[in-house]
Amino acid sequence: MSKLLTVSPSPHVHSSDSTQKIMYRVIYAMIPALIWSVFMFGIDALRVTLIAVAACVAFEYLIQKYLMKVTPSVTDGSAIITGILLAFNVPSNLPWWIILIGAMAAMGIGKLSFGGLGSNIFNPALVGRVFLLLSFPVQMTSWPGIKMAAVDAVSTATPLALIKESVKNGVPIAKIEGLPGLGDLAIGMNAGSLGEVSALLLVLGGIYMIWKKVITWHIPVSILATVLVFSGIFWGINPEMYVNPAFHIMTGGLMLGAIFMATDMVTSPMNPKAQIIYGIGIGLITISIRMFGAYPEGISFAILIMNAVTPLLNYYIKPKRFGGQ
């Protein structure tokens, strides 16, 4: 023996999984939706995404190195995810300096002020998004017309904003003009933020992540089911005033939120029971904001609110113990 024997406590083997691999799998899962957004909104979409990713990575590196004085951990891929998610949550014509501010809020306030990866309470990309939404409401809600849609090339409002406006003015749902059909919504033929438009591709990414065991089904399914049931009740009561549940599910970033943002490991609960409660909470709050709130859509706020509840869920909801209580 040339070298000393190593002694360590058991176990002596480790699975081949690593945090980095998990992060990169999330990135792969987002690529179809990203490609679609480039297809829909043109090269602007790519510009926004690249700026957001570069800014998030740069801010993480700089803050860790010069403010926190720790070894930067940008290689783990989490900053890239935050960057892509932030880009997915903004319109494609957003000026570059607003994106920078959003990235700074996401990384600085949302993530590193809590201590970095694993310690943040709120989803960083959503912190960035909401920060921008409140600071630059005009830029954040002026969506460019989509390049691909033959019918509605000049529309600048999202379907949900259209509905909100019309219902406020007393126009019944059926008479609203320019509302995309369900098929268009599924493929992504509608205006909106970068990543929220194509419901199908987002679901595809979600299935990939479940298959690769990056996420479990509990959170997305409980959110979607809650939205379906809750908005279904209102639709059943008055279809004139309330839009149908399928419409709710496929618009306003609900898919994006349910699959990619609510499932963020760091900020979601740690066991299936708590995850389902968390999902139901997000679904209820989202629909409540959409129907009764001032904003046309509410998944961002819903996730952030439930993020805050997560520690409490972890504390009170325990996994099923072997051998009962």
């Binding site: 000393l4 024997l5 190593t6 002694v7 360590s8 406590p9």
Partner: peptide, 22 residues
């Protein structure tokens, strides 16, 4: 002289519960 090397959580309490030392 070291005769082995410990590779676990680096606290004395845990190391001493695993074995006698390096």
């Amino acid at each position: 002289p070291k005769t082995s090397q410990f590779d676990g959580a680096t606290t004395c309490a845990i190391a001493s519960s695993v074995y006698s030392g390096e």
